[in-house]
């Protein structure tokens, strides 16, 4: 399908930022088109309880909250498609957005593509992701009952993952490549005091061994101090090494910082291209909360509406 309509606004991404932008843009009668990407609802769909979103005093399940966001956006006329945008062309107007060979045109674009779990970049990830390597403890922890697993990373998310995984695993070893932890004191203490958690420092992972049928069997570690390589047996490897913004397909048009995050102009969601706005984790390496993403999504819709008004 190639659609010749010039839309008022196309929103790329469907986490709290994108769907809040859709609610506001819908209410402003911009008839937003939302391309949800290959993880509709965004990162919250792989969490469990969200306890810090205002308005839900008893907490809410991440996936359920995102369904509510989507329903609210649809109620105001947003059209949501489970399609993954592969290319954009912001070199001329109207802007062009591509899903494979399909082309869509729009006067404004709101980017809310979020961030994805960072990988180590090992060859083994291609084969073993989902077969013993995981970036989602809440999704996959269940399959590691009474098994020995490792969590890679030294920040809060690695500590949280490790603590969560002790519900299932026999033993969890946190592997960190440095001696100093980025994790907050309280999270690190919680991990240290957990009898099921071991912590190994100054170790980086060189390789992960295993196959799709039997899963992971071991990892190869290298010591940062003496350079020695050792084999560590484990059946699961969970990554908690942070996130990278989903800007690969955008960076030829947009100004991004040294880590790939979209740079927005002060006190706004405006990017270096007039009519293209960015909100949520794709432009925020610092706060990265559902509520801050939603807040910036609202800003993006208001900025887009203002921009369209000024065109008329």
């Amino acid at each position: 399908m190639t659609d010749k309509t010039i839309h008022k606004t196309i929103i790329i991404g469907s986490g709290p930022a994108g769907l809040t932008a859709a609610i506001y843009a819908g209410r402003a009668n911009l008839k937003p088109i939302v391309f949800e990407g290959n993880q509709p609802g965004g990162q919250l769909t792989i969490t469990t309880d969200v306890e810090n979103f205002p308005g839900f005093p008893d907490g809410v399940m991440g996936p359920e909250m995102m369904d509510l966001f989507r329903n609210q956006a649809k109620k105001f006329g947003a059209e949501c498609f489970f399609k993954h945008v592969t290319k954009v062309d912001f070199s001329s107007k109207p802007f062009k957005v591509y899903v494979g060979d399909e082309e869509f045109l729009s006067e404004t674009v709101i980017l809310s593509t979020g961030a994805s779990a960072r990988m180590l970049g090992l060859e083994a990830e291609k084969d073993l992701m989902g077969y013993g390597i995981s970036t989602c403890a809440t999704c996959d922890g269940y399959f590691f009952k009474d098994k020995e697993i490792v969590v890679v990373g030294g920040g809060d998310s690695a500590m949280e993952e490790a603590s969560f995984l002790t519900k299932f695993a026999k033993k969890v070893t946190i592997i960190h490549r440095r001696e100093v932890f980025k994790a907050s004191k309280i999270m690190l203490e919680r991990a240290r005091n957990n009898p099921k958690i071991d912590i190994m420092v100054n170790k980086s992972i060189l390789d992960i061994k295993g196959n799709q049928k039997d899963g992971v069997s071991s990892i190869i570690l290298k010591d940062a101090i003496d350079g020695k390589e050792t084999v560590f047996n484990c059946e699961g490897v969970f990554y908690g090494i942070g996130h990278i913004p989903n800007t690969d397909f955008l960076s030829m048009f947009l100004d991004v910082d040294e880590n790939g995050y979209i740079i927005t102009k002060a006190d706004s969601t405006r990017t270096n291209i007039d009519g293209v706005f960015a909100c949520g984790d794709v432009q925020d390496s610092h706060y990265r909360q559902a509520i801050t993403a939603a807040g910036s999504g609202c800003m993006a819709a208001i900025d887009a509406e203002k921009f369209l008004e000024n065109l008329e």
Partner: peptide, 17 residues
């Protein structure tokens, strides 16, 4: 449903859903 069906997920080495 992996919560109800015990053997099949093990037989087929399911480690992610």
């Amino acid at each position: 449903n992996v919560d109800e069906v015990k053997q099949a997920p093990v037989n087929y080495g399911i480690r992610s859903i």
